[in-house]
C-alpha cells in the first residue's frame, strides 16, 4: 500500500511516501498502525487521512487501489 506524505509527516517518516505492508482495512486502523510504527504522530494536534483526494472518516475503507495520503495539520495562507 502506497501512502503519500506531506509537511511534517515527511519529516516524521523520513521519506516522501510510505510503501510498506499495512494490515489496515479502514482509516482508523491505518492511523493506529502508523502511530505504532511512528509514535511521533501522536504529538501532532490533528492527523487526517485522505482517500482518493477526499478527507476520509475513521470508518472509510481502504485498499491498495486507493490513493491514500496522510494530512498533518494544514497551514496554508
Amino acid at each position: 500500500m502506497k501512502i503519500l506524505l506531506f509537511g511534517i509527516a515527511k519529516d516524521i517518516v523520513g521519506n516522501q511516501s510510505l510503501d510498506e505492508a499495512f494490515q489496515a482495512k479502514n482509516v482508523a486502523e491505518l492511523k493506529q498502525e502508523l502511530i505504532q510504527k511512528y509514535p511521533e504522530f501522536t504529538k501532532l494536534s490533528s492527523l487526517a487521512v485522505a482517500v482518493d483526494e477526499e478527507y476520509a472518516n475513521d470508518d472509510t475503507p481502504i485498499s491498495a487501489q486507493n490513493e491514500i495520503a496522510i494530512i498533518p495539520p494544514v497551514s496554508g495562507g
Binding site: G7, I8, A69, P72, P73, V74, S75, G76, G77
Partner: peptide, 23 residues
C-alpha cells in the same frame, strides 16, 4: 482555505532553524 486546503508552510528563521508550521 486556511482551515481545509491541504497546503503546508515551513518557516525559515535567522540562523539554521526551520520548522513546519502546525497550528
Amino acid at each position: 482555505l486556511k482551515e481545509k486546503v491541504p497546503i503546508w508552510k515551513k518557516e525559515f528563521f535567522d540562523g539554521t532553524d526551520e520548522v513546519w508550521v502546525t497550528p
